[in-house]
């Protein structure tokens, strides 16, 4: 039995990715299973989904804690979510990232694969400008780096089960298949994952003061975005529309009244660019991970 865990953000298609993989494996003659972790249903929130593939009916119904394959649909998640937890030695980590595989060292020896699925999805018009959907591109890549599913089964599953733009999704999967890079990495000394940002310690005691008293500004929501706003100061008329319509209060006005994007909090929604009367704001693809 092969166990696959998908990590994505709400809206990127992680749940559908697990479902499509199961459908594709079924077309390959395997017996699959897929389901999602029940969490907050929000665009941008970390999402986990699972798939199991075997030659026999699968009776196990639990969450996957020791996956053979981990697929990460959003490069920002590697730093904020425990994506490598339990990945088996000799397993496969597939990450949507323009960076080379060596930039994602795993605790145990593993095959690490990367591809810029965001760029591929955007170039094929899969999803929207502000929210490219990378799941089909990633499945194409998965069919290259593992024997769990074939590319032709992935294409058939897309044709049958993707309601919007199946042709474009199929092309994105093929490009994912051809552009993914793989490296065999030796694992980290001590077998431990590099420490990411440490979450605030949870107290087991009932607090006397307010339950939540830390300012939310410490949370950097910029890792949610794929596009970021760039303001052309020469075109700006200082009308404040971008400041007014920012749902994340991520635009400050400087002493002369020019808007300044607070990069760590901007989620890349693009409202400022659409509402800017002189069109002085452009949404550009975030460079690198």
């Amino acid at each position: 039995m092969i166990e696959i865990r998908f990590h994505g953000r709400g809206g990127q298609g992680a749940v559908i990715a697990a479902e499509l993989l199961a459908q594709a494996a079924n077309l390959d003659g395997k017996i699959p299973q897929s389901f999602a972790f029940y969490g907050a249903e929000r665009r941008g929130a970390p999402v986990v989904s699972y798939a199991r593939i075997d030659d026999r009916p699968i009776r196990l119904r639990t969450a996957i804690t020791a996956p053979d394959i981990v697929v990460v649909l959003d490069p920002g998640l590697v730093e904020v979510a425990p994506v490598m937890d339990g990945l088996k030695p000799g397993g496969t980590l597939l990450v949507n990232s323009p960076l080379p595989p060596e930039r994602f060292p795993t605790p145990k020896p593993a095959f690490v694969a990367t591809l810029d699925a965001t760029q591929i999805a955007l170039s094929h018009g899969v999803g929207s400008r502000t929210m490219p959907i990378v799941n089909t591109t990633m499945l194409g890549a998965l069919s290259r780096v593992s024997s769990v599913v074939s590319l032709s089964a992935v294409q058939h599953a897309i044709d049958e089960h993707v309601p919007a733009r199946p042709a474009e999704n199929g092309l994105a999967a093929i490009e994912g298949f051809h552009t993914v890079r793989v490296a065999e990495l030796p694992g980290l000394p001590g077998g431990k994952a590099p420490s990411g940002p440490v979450a605030p310690a949870l107290s087991s005691e009932v607090p006397e003061g307010p339950i939540a008293s830390m300012a939310s500004d410490v949370l950097h929501t910029s890792s949610w975005r794929t596009l970021q706003p760039v303001i052309t100061r020469e075109k700006c008329t200082r009308c404040n529309f971008c400041w007014k319509f920012c749902p994340d209060n991520a635009i400050d006005l400087d002493s002369e009244g020019f808007p300044v994007v607070r990069n760590e909090h901007c989620k890349g929604c693009g409202l400022c660019a659409v509402e800017c009367p002189p069109v002085a704001i452009e949404m550009v693809v975030e460079g690198g991970a």
């Binding site: 709400g10 665009r43 929130a45 949370l219 975005r225 319509f245 749902p247 994340d248 989620k267 409202l271």
Partner: peptide
Amino acid sequence: ELVRSGHSACPGCGPAL
């Protein structure tokens, strides 16, 4: 501004505004 940044609304959230 009585609403802080770093909240967990979806991008482009109407209720956040």
